[in-house]
């Protein structure tokens, strides 16, 4: 929750991208999902396979930052196998935690050179 309040920081807020109607609607859905007791990681992983940031923006949106804050404890506990099976979340999480205005005291170490098999389009 300290992390969630990060999204409210002026430095972060001033950098949030402008969203169109479709992005705003989708953002509302992700914010709802992120508030649930159990977060749908498989669904999130699939969504992030085709998008660098969750709403297809050029910089992180409130949805990215909120989901990141929500996932931090979970990802911290991930094994190498978890990283491999949720490779798109791992990539995205690593990107968001390096977003400049976020003051993150502890980065979750993510190995960019992990060896995974080539993913074949479903």
């Amino acid at each position: 929750t300290t992390l969630l309040s990060l999204a409210a920081q002026d430095a972060v807020k001033s950098k949030l991208p402008a969203l169109n109607d479709a992005q705003n609607a989708e953002q509302a859905q992700w914010l709802t999902l992120s508030a649930r007791p159990s977060i749908p990681v498989d669904e999130l992983n699939t969504a992030l396979s085709t998008r660098t940031y969750i709403l297809n923006t050029a910089t992180p949106s409130l949805a990215d930052i909120t989901l990141y804050a929500r996932l931090k404890d979970i990802v911290e506990g991930w094994t190498t196998e978890n990283f491999k099976s949720h490779r798109h979340i791992a990539r995205w999480f690593d990107l968001v935690q390096h977003f400049a205005p976020l003051k993150v005291s502890e980065y979750v170490a993510i190995d960019q050179t992990l060896d995974v098999p080539r993913e074949v389009k479903a």
């Binding site: 660098t52 490779r87 791992a90 990539r91 995205w92 690593d94 990107l95 390096h98 977003f99 993510i110 190995d111 960019q112 050179t113 992990l114 995974v116």
Partner: peptide, 9 residues
Amino acid sequence: HFRSYMVGY
């Protein structure tokens, strides 16, 4: 696979 940009973040 685990990179969003070619180099760094």
